[in-house]
């Protein structure tokens, strides 16, 4: 693995996000970038991966040569495996577990996220029509919601806004935002700039953020 200080982009985001995990946490990782967190688990931290289709203790795709179990899949429907100690259950139990606040951390991506903790990540009217899947339940139910996202979209527009414009996934539920530039934490007072990536200045973050940020006297480093 590269030295943490060499990490950039999505790898840096995944590295930092994984450092919010506590040993033994049950975590639900959204499809795509969030699953990357498992590549960067800190030493001594073991987490149990919840998958909303009905298991806790997913262990990733079968390795080359390992048999594929047609009855075990991840939240994207791809073949997966179960670790020793895993359990399987039906969707009712799964979403009771999620909605009931038993998932320690839910990690998801974002189209937009705002300073009130609102998240939009399921629909762009006229463009995407895939449906929300389990995202609304996860964001509303998990104990802690971490959004990991590139700071700006592909056109360079800020994704961290004063107010989301797209249809919401959930209102007021986001706790932490991790980007390749910084870590933001939502407090009662507003979004606080907690940490900066190496070489990134407060001014750069402010210039690429639409939301109002609280800048404390001391700002930590993501690495």
């Amino acid at each position: 693995m590269a030295q943490p200080t060499e990490l950039k982009g999505r790898d840096l985001i995944a590295y930092r996000t994984a450092r919010f995990f506590n040993d033994g946490d049950v975590v639900n990782l959204g499809i795509g970038m969030p699953t990357k967190c498992l590549d960067y688990l800190p030493e001594g931290i073991d987490v149990w991966v919840d998958t909303e289709n009905g298991a806790i203790g997913l262990a990733g795709p079968p390795k080359a040569g390992e048999p594929v179990d047609k009855d075990v899949c991840d939240a994207a429907g791809n073949p997966s495996t179960l670790r020793v100690g895993a359990c399987c259950f039906d969707s009712f139990t799964s979403f009771g577990y999620i909605r009931g606040g038993h998932v320690d951390i839910s990690v998801l991506g974002a189209y937009e996220v705002d300073q009130e903790g609102n998240l939009a990540n399921w629909m762009v009217p006229g463009k995407t029509a895939a449906g929300m899947g389990g995202a609304m339940d996860l964001v509303a139910g998990a104990k802690k919601v971490i959004v990991m996202t590139e700071h700006c979209d592909k056109q360079g527009n800020p994704k961290i806004l004063k107010k989301c414009k797209l249809p919401l996934t959930a209102a007021g539920e986001v706790d932490i935002i991790v980007t390749e530039l910084c870590v933001l934490e939502r407090t009662e007072e507003g979004l606080v700039l907690k940490e900066l990536a190496p070489g990134v200045t407060v001014e750069e973050v402010l210039s690429k953020t639409d939301a109002e940020l609280i800048i404390p006297e001391e700002i930590g480093s993501m690495i």
Partner: peptide, 9 residues
């Protein structure tokens, strides 16, 4: 395994 999903409900 995870083939149970919505079947039971």
């Amino acid at each position: 395994r995870t083939a149970r999903n919505f079947n039971q409900v």
